[in-house]
Design a protein around this nucleic acid. Structure first.
Lengths: 186, 186
DNA sequence: CTCAACATGTAAATGGTTACATGATTTT
DNA sequence: AAAATCATGTAACCATTTACATGTTGAG
């Protein structure tokens, strides 16, 4: 379902596009909230066309097929957006699993992991903030452009994860009584 | 892979258990970071036993099989925990997709959705905070117990999502110029 | 005796990833 | 002429979900 919705949203927003274009669009923008490769996108477009949600608007050179959203597709998209019950998608994340299992490790091992996590998350924060800055330069400064609000959400989540790594490291270090194996350097 | 690690972690922490026990443990605790039902767990346990990561310790009544983690299983778990590179799992969430597509809607429609999201997220925050309070009462107050740190992470994420719904609603309402279809009630 | 909880499995369907396969056009 | 990019598809595999299927034990 979600792949369909994502494709309908892209077609609605940017107008007619080919499977190739949509694959690129996925890589560029939407892959921060949903991922799909061309091997999933092409068959899905064929099914959506069969269901009347999109139509082949033109066949270009190199076998290029340009799809456009139909009124039925617009309805489907609008219906999904406005009537889906806000199910909090359960988290399914290896990092969260690692966090879950942290108490199994020795404090020093846990601290090492948290330090590495912290670096990775800090890099992600920077990546997303740069992306937002680049977007701001390219277009008008308001909330138009798909992905504006989800990018904000992503940045907030990444910053929260960064805070968590710091707080957790502090917490573990406190229980650990750092004198044990980190003798102060004079 | 992750399912294996989750099962190894539970067996390591709580000692020998049956597939049934582990299914219950999943439902209770770990399902905030990873989900699996019994139909996935039983076959996986069989494969893990074949791979020597766990062993059948005892066969009880009602066909109950009790599995225990082996030294090889412990190694595998420890290796995964300490040597996995902290890949930020890409988000794949319907809610994030909905956030991504929000600019397609009329401001009033978007505000309605954000209001419903806000209620759902607030409920999640409360659920998780209650869970932490209940855990605190039951056992010692420090960071022991699997899931202590990931629960903290979950609470922080949920609060962040709540903040986002409020900020986004405020932002959209500002652009919308509320006088348009929300005349002030005298 | 009946119902809830215990206990384990398999099968079918869906969704997603990786690899295979092919060919046209444009750029260097 | 070679390489990069455009462009589309299929096949095999893996993970996950939902449904099917069966039988035991203990409590009320």
């Amino acid at each position: 379902m979600s792949l369909r919705i994502a494709l309908l949203g892209l077609l609605k927003f940017s107008g007619p596009a080919s499977g190739y274009d949509l694959t690129k669009a996925f890589e560029r923008s939407i892959n921060y909230v949903w991922q799909a490769g061309h091997s999933q996108i092409y068959p899905e477009l064929a099914k959506m066309a069969a269901d009347g949600l999109i139509g082949v608007e033109a066949q270009g050179t190199r076998g290029r097929k340009t799809y456009a959203i139909t009124p039925e597709g617009s309805d489907e998209l609008h219906h999904w957006m406005t009537s889906r019950v806000p199910t909090l998608a359960p988290v399914r994340s290896e990092s969260a699993l690692q966090a879950f299992l942290l108490p199994l490790l020795e404090p020093q091992e846990a601290l090492d992991i948290l330090r590495r996590m912290q670096e990775a998350v800090a890099a992600r924060v920077k990546e997303l903030e740069d992306l937002r800055a680049a977007k701001r330069e390219r277009q008008v400064g308001d909330g138009s452009g798909l992905g504006y609000y989800s990018l904000d959400l992503g940045i907030r989540h990444a910053r929260t994860a960064l805070d968590w790594t710091k707080a957790t490291a502090t917490d573990i270090a406190a229980h650990h009584s750092p004198a044990d194996d980190e003798p102060p350097k004079p």
